[in-house]
Each structure stands twice: as C-alpha cells, then as structure tokens.
C-alpha cells in the first residue's frame, strides 16, 4: 500500500511512473534466456529540495533504479522525469544537473585525490582553479586534512575515499544528488561526518537528494519521506512516522519487516 503524502501542486524534481527493468541472462550456451525483473512498475515522486530515502534489502532494485536515473541503464517500461526533463530522451542535458555517489568509491586508485577531482571537474567543464578551491572547501567540511589532497587514493581508508566521492559529486553543486548507499561500510565517525554534511548541504543549497540505504537511523535522520522497496516493487511510502503508524510498530526496522516481509538487518549482516 502506498501512502499519499505529497501535495499535487509541489514542484517535482523526480517523477517516476511505472518503471520496469528486466535483465536477461543465458545460463549455458544452449539454455533459454532467463528473465529477472529488477523493477516491476515502480512509481514515486520527490519534491524539489526534498530528501527521499529508498530502503530495501540487496536485490530489491535500489541500485538499478539509481542507475536508470543516472542515465546508465535504459528502462524497459515506464517514465522518468528529472528536473522537468525526460529520460532517456534528454539525458545529455540531465547529466549536467546530477551528481552520483555509489556504494563503491570508484576512482583511479593510483591517482591522487587532487588528480581524480580535477579530472572529474574538467569533465563537467569546470575550470581547474575553481574546482580545486571548491574541493578544498568541501573536504575541509568533511574533516579531511588538506595535506591528504595529494595522496594516492589507494593509500586512503574507505571512509576517506567515500568522502572524496561525495566531494566529486558536489564539485558542480548539482541540484539533484543520487546517493546509492553512500555510508555503507563506513566507521561510525565517518558515517556521522557524511550524514551531517549532507544535512547541512541540503539546507544551504536546496539540493534534492535521493538516498538508498540499509541504515534505518540514517533514513530517519536524513529523509523527509521514505519508500520501502522489495522484490522490485515500492510496497510502502511515507514519512518515518507514517510508516511506523501504518505497520503498527515502534521503530522503522519493525515497520520495514511488517510491511515488506523482509529483514533488512539480516541482509546487511550478510552483506558485511
């Protein structure tokens, strides 16, 4: 059941209607193609400036959804509108306006943080000096010392790499951020640093954020509304309180189990 909690007259930054995606895999040379539906008609909207959380266990379709919104996958059905533009028809224009952070901080590990960030900035048409200044500001707020700027990424901890990834996604200050489990695997301090920074950044810039996570506390802290995704379907949606009320439970994790029939914590443990 989907809870109606958005007002129709609110400007939507993300509009997803009946999104479907199937992956076909042949197991063996002569075998038939096997179909696996990653998304089975997902619909939701995110208002301009809102932080919307998508919670779901591994394989629920969260990353597939983020990849479609990031222009990296073409859906098999449904419609996606980002900032008033349609995917995949207007993907070239949309790419200027989105930043993405994935669960694995993907970098050229031999290059330094500076080299990785300047490369990314230039790809987006940013002048090197401006990019360097902005990168330093963000890194400082994320608690990374400036002397680490010239260190190769391979010499940095996972938490630091993820902070560099967040810096990369914000170099051009995009109006829409797609965050795919950005704090998974981080130590508690790094997790708090990142969450605090994202809160402040959204308040200061009015950025719309779509966040996928396993972490219930993170979702409650950062997201105004949350969607529960299970087996490729959005099974429930609303504020954390609305979801708890809907499930008749005290905390969000219980609400998740009650509404989806899945245990996200067990899944997270397995992921670790």
């Amino acid at each position: 059941m989907v809870v109606e909690s958005t007002e129709n007259n609110v400007k939507q930054a993300i509009r997803v209607e009946g999104l479907r995606k199937v992956f076909r895999k042949r197991e063996g040379f002569r075998a038939k193609l096997k179909e696996e539906w990653a998304l089975k008609g997902v619909s939701f909207q995110v208002a301009d400036g809102e932080t919307y959380g998508l919670l779901g266990p591994n394989g629920s379709g969260k990353s597939t959804l983020i990849r479609i919104l990031s222009t990296l996958l073409i859906a098999d059905g449904g419609e996606v509108w980002l900032l008033g533009m349609r995917l995949p028809q207007e993907e070239a224009a949309i790419r200027h306006l989105i930043g993405r952070v994935s669960v694995d901080a993907a970098f050229y590990k031999k290059l330094s943080a500076r080299e990785n960030l300047l490369y990314a900035a230039q790809l987006y048409g940013l002048e090197a000096r401006t990019a360097e200044r902005r990168a330093m500001e963000i890194l400082e707020r994320l608690g990374i010392e400036s002397r680490r700027f010239n260190d190769p990424l391979e010499e940095m901890s996972r938490g630091m790499q993820q902070k560099i990834a967040i810096t990369r996604s914000l170099l051009t200050n995009p109006p829409l951020l797609l965050l795919d489990e950005p704090t998974t695997g981080l130590d508690p301090k790094s997790r708090r640093d990142v969450q605090g920074f994202l809160e402040d950044h959204r308040k200061e810039n009015g950025t719309t954020i779509l966040l996928t996570t396993h972490d219930m506390a993170e979702a409650e802290r950062l997201c105004e509304r949350i969607g529960f995704l299970a087996h490729g379907r959005l099974v429930a949606e609303g504020t954390a309180d609305e979801l708890k009320y809907q499930a008749g439970s005290e905390d969000l994790e219980e609400a998740f189990i009650g509404l989806t029939g899945e245990d996200i914590k067990a899944d997270e443990e397995m992921g670790k």
């Binding site: 990849r67 990031s70 222009t71 990296l72 070239a92 993907a106 970098f107 990314a120 987006y124």
Partner: peptide
Amino acid sequence: GTLEYTFMAP
C-alpha cells in the same frame, strides 16, 4: 571501476 562515472558525465 570508473566506467559508469565516465559514461554518466556530460
């Protein structure tokens, strides 16, 4: 692992 970032750049 950077292919997706290169392909989603404008």
